[in-house]
Design a protein around this nucleic acid. Structure first.
Lengths: 351, 351
DNA sequence: ATGCTCTGCTAAATCATTTTAGCTGCGCCG
DNA sequence: CGGCGCAGCTAAAATGATTTAGCAGAGCAT
């Protein structure tokens, strides 16, 4: 790999100047007194030889690698990881940096290993990412360089990047209220564990907070709140069946994420109820599935790409301590409509 | 980052030996004549100082970085990328290597940039990945070190890792035949572009080949073949509606991927037909959605994690030129049953 | 006594860069 | 005529490892 590349010495020789001169010209050093002609010659020589500096040598001297570490707990189990990484990749490229990626799988030994591997390679900074928004303790080993938490907060006030779940919840509920839904809004996805323990989730309490505040401001209460052990389709399905067995039926439900909403869709489909005519559904995340559902699901999108980008910007350009919130854009699709007048009756979709 | 680490010189000094001795001991060099006591002292000193070698310095000398490049066209748009990366990450870690990740977004300029960035950093090898199985020309710049194609083949016979789509198709169709489906099997997802142009897809023709061969061996023909402009849910939905408007109705459909199958599920749900009682459905990929559908979708899983792993194994351990096929395990869920006796009638799911 | 081999170790070169310190020659001032 | 400053450049050190070449001393044979 990278056989016989031209070195700085080659460039200098071809330009008829010293390595010092070549180095200074190529690095665009200010305040050097090298002649315009010297500049010309160096550039020409570098061009002719296709010179590219050897990063290993440069790093050895400068202790900079133009490389930043992206260490995450789990990349595979969530399909959002890709977006986080893409955003980080883009921002890194714009600043001529490159990403060294590792994964800890939540395992302490792997984490130690990963951190050491990064440190050995003299990364210029670290993005420490969690795939579900939660609280993370930064291993002390990486303090000493810039560290930014992505999708996580830390006990000590470190810069971090988070989705603005609370604002998203506000937007979602306001959309429902704007369509005329009032006292028959139900919530699917309450979860004591997620809401109570910041090690588990930051998102859950924020979403709940936003929902409650907005409803309270409009002086309406929730018709029902369904607890779910996990935020998976099967739980959304069960919750929706349960809601449908009760009276009165909700005119709208907000689901804590799209997978729950998907389960809710399934239950509604089986019950022969139409979305949004019989029941409106809104949710969080903008999982790809949200666009595939029929009708498309209105949901607040996790801005993963922008978050990834922001994280490396904070690492490279520096940033204030504490959280930096990225807004979650509302994707308006077809799952919201005004509640039907009177008591809605089950109806069949066309065959 | 990585402030004042102990250097080899420090270790040597503490051990009361030369750098040469320390280096040789720590690298476990054979054939050196250093005493057992010298070994002891070096290890003790390294331990005491928490010595870790500086990779930049080492790479400068050895031209090895214990780093491999993972360059892909697009990571974000597919949720499988995560699995590919995870597999690669695992294999890399096992061999004490680390992954430098970049993305070309299919853009030639970005690709050039990415390749140069990798080469500047003296990566030991390159995994060149496409997110949809297709043909890729390896940029000549990276020849000279090991290059393995992931999810892609190249015109020149380079080592590459591919899912075994053909075998998967065989398994899927055999599962249908085993349940007694014969002449009323339909296919959703024919696509001339994908089937005809290896730059676009390798998977499509392989899947089609497997399906046809298996049916031919059992001496049965396809009831219908639906062409789809893309492999998205809406196209699967339309195709299934079309199939249902015809007579006789299929007893089973094989979809070219899970997103098409999802669309087919939607159409069947709306038509009030039950899976698998009225129609069996099988498909390819094992998208997360396959497990979320009701009933779970029987599908041949893209073995992305194993593929990612295999690719870095080939880079590091060397491997024969040409394709290395990774089997696609069949995920048997609830979407397949024996065809109903007689003419199936529309039926309603319980409300 | 000389030379040879073997053991156990080390000095110094090397890798490709950045950076510090300083050199050379010229013009100018006093 | 001596010294000073400046323009334009360079030699050499430094970064932290690996590796080549070889040294000092002991043992042994001649």
């Amino acid at each position: 790999m990278g056989r016989n590349r031209a070195t700085l010495a080659d460039v200098a020789r071809l330009a008829g100047l010293s390595k010092t001169a070549a180095s200074m010209v190529l690095n665009g050093r200010e305040g050097t007194r090298l002649s315009a002609e010297a500049h010309q010659r160096v550039f020409a020589a570098a061009e002719e030889l296709g010179y590219r500096p050897n990063m290993a040598a440069r790093s050895l001297r400068t202790r900079k690698t133009a490389t930043i570490a992206f260490v995450s707990d789990i990349v595979a189990t969530t399909r959002f990881a890709g977006d986080l990484i893409r955003g980080a990749l883009d921002a890194a490229r714009e600043r001529d940096h490159v990403l060294l990626i590792t994964e800890t799988q939540g395992d302490a030994a792997f984490e130690r290993y990963a951190i050491e591997a990064m440190l050995d390679r003299q990364v210029d900074g670290v993005v420490y990412a969690a795939m579900a928004t939660r609280r993370l303790t930064v291993p002390p080993a990486i303090l000493g360089g810039p560290v930014v938490l992505l999708n996580a907060v830390s006990p000590d006030e470190r810069p971090c990047v988070l989705p603005d779940d609370e604002q998203a919840a506000v937007a979602l509920v306001e959309a429902l209220l704007a369509h005329g839904h009032r006292d028959r809004i139900a919530l699917i996805g309450r979860n004591r564990l997620k809401e109570g323990d910041p090690e588990v989730s930051i998102a859950a309490p924020a979403r709940l907070r936003g929902i409650r505040a907005t409803l309270a401001a409009a002086d309406v209460g929730l018709l029902a709140e369904c607890f779910c052990a996990e935020w998976l389709p099967e739980h959304g399905y069960a919750a929706m069946r349960n809601l449908l067995s009760r009276s009165p039926r909700p005119t709208a439900v907000v689901c804590m994420n799209d997978r729950l909403a998907f389960g809710a869709y399934q239950a509604l489909g089986e019950a022969g109820l139409a979305i949004p005519e019989d029941i409106s559904v809104v949710s969080f995340d903008d999982d790809p599935i949200a666009a595939w559902l029929r009708p498309g699901l209105t949901t607040a999108a996790l801005p993963h790409e922008r978050m990834g980008r922001r994280a490396v910007e904070l690492v490279l350009d520096g940033g204030d301590a504490g959280p930096s919130y990225v807004p979650m854009p509302l994707r308006r699709r077809r799952s919201v409509a005004a509640p039907a007048a009177g008591v809605p009756a089950p109806r069949r979709a066309p065959a």
